[in-house]
Design a protein around this nucleic acid. Structure first.
Lengths: 237, 237
DNA sequence: TTCGATAAAATGTGATCACATTTTTGAATT
DNA sequence: AATTCAAAAATGTGATCACATTTTATCGAA
């Protein structure tokens, strides 16, 4: 079987003080998160290096970093690929995400100022805008911004790296699955979260965050999502 | 100030099929976990490479991996070091650890067989042995084995990498602090956990795991531990 | 055709080097 | 003595190469 399409990676704009390393990492991360790299397709160092026009060195480190973050998987063959998703693994990731993010929200709550609530409200409005415009990718990104900006109210940050790892693992699958959905947001759980923040109500906040996550991912039923995903996925090596 | 002692790293035995990369990673990880690398001390690639007798390449990747796992910190200067611990960050890490591990235990519970309970019991006995012998390092390692073996009952593993990251961040500090303690285990929380596993009792399991973690870290009071830690720590660059 | 063995190509790994940035050193000035 | 600033040393980054392992292609036998 001829597997390889020439690996068309979206080349992100390179920021001013950024090292090649960081730039390659951002580009690869974005590609994985968007679902551009099919699971089971081997990511070779030389291919990625050629696609981005750099040497092997920064690519090696970016691939290893993403592997450490569980976004990629290093097989015994030393081949690196996007891990295959299964229904039960997906469920496990969702429950873990809910557990960690509810914890993060609760630990952030005491530090949330009215200024931050305003910022969050602004982000929420932007989500509504891009959602109305049908821009699913922007919805995903701004939604992540909303959650990140909430959790980072806590000045002693230890949870965000773990959350980002889970987002990365769910990312490619959710993206692919979301394209099959009709209406993304039914109830605005963010409003409920914002209300809970204003009242400094931990329990209500947890409930809103959990509902928000479930709505965003699981409310149409895991099976359909997974089916759409598996159908579009490649075979393992 | 002359900062650098010659960086004496414990060289682990190299396993049969292991790449230099993995070996360097294991060695460095162990050194960090044990608290051999003082916070604030810069870890230079060439120093580590010289200490381990390898080239810069595997060291670079090992350092980056540990940075991704939050065990090391990459400063703006591009210098890499063990992050400084603070009282509030420590508290945050403990609460996060409890939250995640309770979740992990609960999700593992349905998959725990009598065979696994037997294995866990055996590990627990070994903990008692090395604890009686006063071998604190072995207690730490076997204690981690106990928790890992419990959570890995769940065949859809997504939580262990995150747990390992937290252990890594707490590791150097706990090690240092433990040396100040008299009796490590007062109540055997593992017995309570094992009983809960046999009864398939989720709530009792959560309570036992939380109590175990708190006993192991926080019961003597965070402030004393931190004081002992900070006193032994180096200055930031 | 199908299967298996061998050769050829591709790939990951580790080492070395050049260069830009950062840190340290050391002397000159106040 | 303290400070400043330029030279020197140290360090991280990125590129290139050789080599061992793995994958793929090729050819011959059942």
């Amino acid at each position: 079987m001829v597997s390889s399409a020439p690996l068309n990676l979206p080349v992100l704009a390179r920021e001013p003080k950024e090292t090649t390393n960081q730039w390659v990492y951002r580009s690869l991360r974005r590609a994985v998160m968007i679902g551009l790299v099919p699971p089971g397709r081997a990511l070779t160092i030389r291919d990625v290096a050629a696609a981005l026009g750099v040497s092997a060195m920064p690519v090696r480190e970016a691939l290893r970093r993403l592997s450490t973050e569980q976004a990629l998987e290093v097989r015994d063959n030393r081949r690196i690929m996007v891990p295959q998703m299964t229904a039960s693994k997906f469920r496990e990731l969702c429950e873990l995400r809910i557990s960690i993010e509810c914890h993060a929200a609760e630990r952030a709550l005491p530090y949330v100022t009215t200024q931050r609530v305003d910022d969050l409200t602004a982000i929420d409005r932007r989500i509504d805008q891009v959602n109305a415009a049908g821009d699913r990718e922007a919805v995903t990104m701004f939604n992540q911004d909303f959650h990140r900006h909430l959790y980072e109210a806590n000045p002693n940050q230890v949870v965000m790296p773990l959350v980002e790892s889970i987002w990365l693992q769910l990312g490619p699958f959710v993206r692919l699955a979301l394209s099959k959905l009709q209406d993304f947001y039914q109830v605005d759980r963010h409003s409920e979260a914002l209300a809970a923040l204003k009242r400094q109500d931990p329990l209500a906040l947890r409930i809103a965050i959990e509902a928000d996550i479930r709505d965003g991912i699981t409310h149409v039923g895991t099976n359909e999502l997974l089916k759409a995903y598996v159908e579009s996925a490649g075979q393992p090596s």
